[in-house]
Design a protein around this nucleic acid. Sequence first.
DNA 1: AAGTGGTCTAGACCACTTT
DNA 2: AAGTGGTCTAGACCACTTC
Lengths: 233, 233
Amino acid sequence: MIDPSVPLPKYLQLRALLLDTISRLPMDALIPSERELCRRFNVSRTTVRQAVDQLVVEERLRRVPGKGMVVARPPNRFQSFADDMHALGMSASCVDLGTQTIEADADLADLLGTAPGAPVHVLHRLRLADGQPMAVERSYIPAALAPDLFERRRPGGSLFKALEREFGIVTDTGDQTIEAGPATDNEAEPLDIPQGGTVFHLRRRTFSRGACAELTFSTYRADRYRIHLGLKP
Amino acid sequence: MIDPSVPLPKYLQLRALLLDTISRLPMDALIPSERELCRRFNVSRTTVRQAVDQLVVEERLRRVPGKGMVVARPPNRFQSFADDMHALGMSASCVDLGTQTIEADADLADLLGTAPGAPVHVLHRLRLADGQPMAVERSYIPAALAPDLFERRRPGGSLFKALEREFGIVTDTGDQTIEAGPATDNEAEPLDIPQGGTVFHLRRRTFSRGACAELTFSTYRADRYRIHLGLKP
DNA sequence: AAGTGGTCTAGACCACTTT
DNA sequence: AAGTGGTCTAGACCACTTC
């Protein structure tokens, strides 16, 4: 199970094994005790605690003194559109408006951190909440990270889930800029709002292990949408 | 220095001592080595590492293998308006438009987590960037937390700094909602924009040890302002 | 009473940087 | 060569929960 000869430290090997176990378990499930893990993997308790500590920081496990360790809710993944709408009590749906694969120009390459001219997948979508238009989105994904994305992706499904399940890309950080202003005619039409109506312009990048995995420009109807953020120092 | 009889664990006592040291040191300063701290405070290396580990997670310290431990940049405090503007390359200033102390109505009490009728300080400010109006803000602070806030606060100075320095209130979490829409006449006038110009409406709450310390409604000119966010899962 | 996580000790060897 | 952080061991006692 744990190979002392492998260059990866024992506690990280153990963490990976625990993560695999956790992912198959329901929330609040009790996992084996620290001392039991020591016996089972033949490592010291310090090593077990080092592995567990990290999972606790990552909010995958909770310690319960006197009881044991239980599986915690998955950490806040980046808000998918569907989750976002459900939190507001609305149903979410999505219409694909088109896909293509282009070569990155200088600006796009700069934002994605790829070489200029590198192939990039583009996904154009209309987001609906309770059946009414809420946003239009244009997503860019470096083709090197997900070569046959459009063949493997379930149309209308979550882009994040496809990246994670089909290509093993788990996003870990991101950045976002938010602007507001009047909609252009091109934007107003699919959103079903008057020309010049107020919209949010969002630009979001999400990163996986230091590389930009996804760049999305969204235009949200400001009359229907409100952004909620939790802040941590 | 470290008292084994006190109920607080040694590693937390040590963490507090280190935090005090760190706060007086410039960024990238080298602090004593782990083994030196063991000798100096007469604790085991495990205990030292436990204290340091926490400060590393909190981004107050960085470890440099082979070198030592250095003071890291202070963690992202909540963006003060001044910091926000400086990041955009603009100078920031502030004009106090008035202060008063009121009794919380039901809505305000709900948002602040105080009892209805509890006294609340209100601070009304105009924010300027490069000398031009950028935002108007209305801040509410439970008077119980900062009784003589208006006597002790430096006019035009940072509210957060005053709460921290004068009342020991350090904010640890927060939430924020962002809307966009046309400005009302009341808002447009001090911001020096046309009636109906696009503005951001921000509502931010910051918490200190579980209690709301501050509630601020801001109206930002959308033609000059852009929101930047770092995202973590 | 037995088991759990929480804290703590006193060592050890490694890869790395500095001198 | 000396010092540093990174990893690891094999114990220990405590407060707590469960039986």
